[in-house]
Amino acid sequence: MNKLVFARSLLGGAAMVAMSLLAQAQAQTAYVSSEKDHTLTVIDLKTQAVTGTVPTCRRPRHVQLTPDGKKLLVACAESNAADVIDLATRKSVGRLAIGEDPEAFDLSPDGKTLYISQEDDAALGFFDIASGKFTRTVEVGKEPEGVKASPDGKLVWVTSEVANMVHVIDAATGKVVKNVKVGKRPRRLALTPDGSQLWVTNEMSASVSILSTKDWTVTDTIQFEVKGARSTDITPVGITMTKDGKQAFVALGRANHVAFVDVASHKTTALALVGKRAWNVTLDKSEKQLLVVNGLSDDVTLVDVATAKPLKSLPVGRVPYGAVIVE
């Protein structure tokens, strides 16, 4: 199967599309955005090797799979657009003008609306993908960052790094339902699978705030500690959870570790040493491997979930930002 991927990259062209689809049906491929190379680095997770790059618009940051699993959307800061990358051909098939300097976004569950934090305008934009137009702009705190749409499509959450808040926004009306004060410089969000808790990483507080989705109170704050690191060097950003909602993974930024957190007890069960400034984290489908993007060492680290041991670090493009695993 790996030979197939290799052959395709040698031959290329339309004739190979069918073959690559076949390959992808069995493959386990990671795409890692690189802010300074304007590419996605392609990694075959089965062989743990870099197999190529896909050119994108300029300064790609957040990457996300479309709900049909066929395309990647990549927000590009310097192109003021999102690139639409077709996974079968690994080529750009379109651009969405999603506003100035885009970084983080999420899609509505139906895949029709793209919610984008607009850092310079301190707003959350509702972008209609079909028409390519903004249908709504909601004013939020300065430097909005992490965005997440609720699975039922009713709410959108966005963090403001300056206001130190999570804004709870009604997706239908665009009204800010609630402003929840969390830790300093809130970055990314994860929802427990049962929908009861929203976890928010606080980059400047070395913590995760846990919000109850019932009444939007902060029910607990998980403070991270790493032996030998001062709390100011623990700068959590990326976060993800297992599908059973038992385990969370938090990238601790400059502390160069990923924390494994037991969701029920809020306790850190393990710390895995990764590269410099662990930034975003992604699980594969079987939840056996965690891919950690290291922003300052231009590499990614694959971590074994069962043992919390790093398996391998692979060099990618300059200033890697985010990753998607396609299986």
Binding site: A122, V140, G141, K142, S160, V162, A163, N164, M165, N179, K181
Partner: peptide
């Protein structure tokens, strides 16, 4: 100006 949201809240 940029603290508007926090101050209002």
């Amino acid at each position: 100006k940029e603290a508007k949201f926090e101050l209002e809240a």
